[in-house]
């Protein structure tokens, strides 16, 4: 029912066509992967959904909400949170604070003031964040400053931050970039758990085909701002255009 429906999305950057009439829909409860070469417009699509980029034409609807009419900071209230391809963290805050940051939209003014005064209230807030950290597997990191932590940890903290607001849809941009095989499998596992245990829809951009094939319900292949094909992993893998274009080697590898 709360599907993300994107139609005819068109984005130009001073002459460069980043998205050329993209249409797709993400169904509730699935893991939907976007793959495609660098510069094919995947991140731009994310930026359109979260309001950072205003498209030239097209629509993005989430359930019966028109996302394009909302400023970036109102997107999270619709139940959509996201991570970024390049780390967007607050290095001089602790891991726990970074995670609590994700809770921002859930705390009203009155609650904020109450938390200045009441220690109990603060602890309640923290407990919830710590549960999510535990879920992701960062249980012992909460007191550490993010600055200086390994890339992999920082990436996971970003995912935790996106999860703590209890979204219905989470957008994850290249979670496994720069990670080794073991860490990639870890991420794959987490993505599966997000869908299965938390019941959150996942829209993920990823280059690592083993990860994509392992966790996706459906895969969408992008090239130069166009959708080449959408389908289940096996279908997509077999799609001739995809194989000839770019997938071939990496699937084998």
């Amino acid at each position: 029912m709360a599907d993300l429906v994107i139609e005819n999305l068109e984005v130009h950057f001073s002459g460069v066509v980043a998205l050329d009439g993209v249409s797709l829909n993400v169904r509730e409860g699935e893991v939907f992967s976007l793959v495609g070469p660098n510069g094919s417009g995947k991140t731009t699509l994310f930026n359109c959904i979260s309001g950072f980029v205003t498209p030239l034409g097209g629509t993005i609807d989430y359930g019966d909400l028109d996302l394009l009419s909302k400023p970036p900071h109102s997107i999270i209230a619709t139940g959509i949170s996201r991570t970024f391809q390049n780390l967007q963290n607050i290095p001089y805050m602790t891991v726990l604070d970074n995670v609590l940051l994700g809770n921002h939209s859930r705390i009203g003014n009155r609650e904020t003031v109450r938390r200045w005064i009441s220690r109990r209230q603060r602890e309640l807030e923290e407990e919830r964040a710590l549960e999510v950290l535990d879920f992701i597997g960062l249980a012992n990191y909460e007191q550490k400053y993010l600055s200086g932590q390994p890339y992999c940890i920082q990436k996971l903290v970003e995912i935790t931050r996106a999860l703590v607001s209890q979204p219905k849809l989470i957008l994850i941009d290249e979670p496994a970039a720069g990670m080794n095989d073991q860490e990639t499998m870890e991420i794959a596992k987490i993505i599966g758990e997000i869908r299965d245990y938390l019941g959150i829809t996942v829209l993920v951009v990823e280059h690592d085909m083993s990860l994509v094939m392992a966790v996706s319900d459906r895969v969408c292949v992008f090239d130069s701002g166009n959708v080449i094909t959408i389908g289940e992993p096996a279908e997509v893998k077999a799609h001739p255009e995809v194989i000839s274009a770019f997938l071939g080697e990496s699937v084998v590898a």
Binding site: S50, G51, F52, P71, P72, H73, S74, I75, I76, A77, S81, R82, F84, Q88, N89, I90, P91, Y92, M93, D97, L100, L101, G102, N103, H104, S105, I107, T112, R115, R161, A162, S165
Partner: peptide, 20 residues
């Protein structure tokens, strides 16, 4: 919440907006 928001604005306006 307020302090975290202000620091987020300093270090990443994108992250700040994404969390609302």
């Amino acid at each position: 919440k307020i302090g975290r928001a202000l620091m987020a604005i300093r270090d990443s306006e994108h992250a700040a907006q994404a969390v609302g």
